[in-house]
Design a binder for these strands. Sequence first.
DNA 1: GGGACGATCGAT
DNA 2: TCGATCGTCCCC
Length: 213
Amino acid sequence: MSEQYGKIVDKSFFAQPTLTLAKRLLGMELVHEAPEGTAAGRIVEVEAYLGPEDKAAHSYGGRLTERTKVMYGPPGHAYLFHIYGMHICFNVVSGPVGKPEAILVRALEPTQGIPLMAARRRIAVLQEKDGRLKLRQRKLLTNGPGKLCQALGLTMEHYGCDLTVPPVYLRKTGEPLPDEAIASGPRINIDYAEEAREYPWRFWIKGNPFVSK
DNA sequence: GGGACGATCGAT
DNA sequence: TCGATCGTCCCC
């Protein structure tokens, strides 16, 4: 086990190119300490959105609105947005000040606060004899960008928060994953993005069962 | 003021 | 494959 285990990331961690940072996020934990309890999961799937040049990005063409403004600030903060009128997605702001890039977290492997996550997701708790949720049930908690926000209790109140301090932060779990353990491919649900549809900017941990469908 | 749309989810 | 559901954006 690494001596880095359990440490919260510091600001310098975010000073790397967005595609590199996206892969470095894989394997790290996203944690939310809420009044009702702490919930966390290991990041197993992400997508990078590279600002003005990327037709799939909310900041395409330098679009600057109340919704997108946090992406123009320093990296390591939370960009959350509403989607389809009923879901929220969580992103890590990336890129230097003035360069509006972000990394969408698409799926987690639950690690802490699983009963709390199940309650938030309103999933009936079917347990094994040892008290753990069945794998099939644990997957339903966080295998999608909207699901993981609901499970962790992330809301628009967390818009812009600093991910190097509680209540929402990133925690190291060991050494970075080797490239051989990482798969990549086109991003999901961006049919409107023309040539950007094909960019292989979705990254996930090979073979991990908690990756979204 | 109003219309169109969406980095999703869950049921069919 | 499709409908739900509403904040955001942009145009009128």
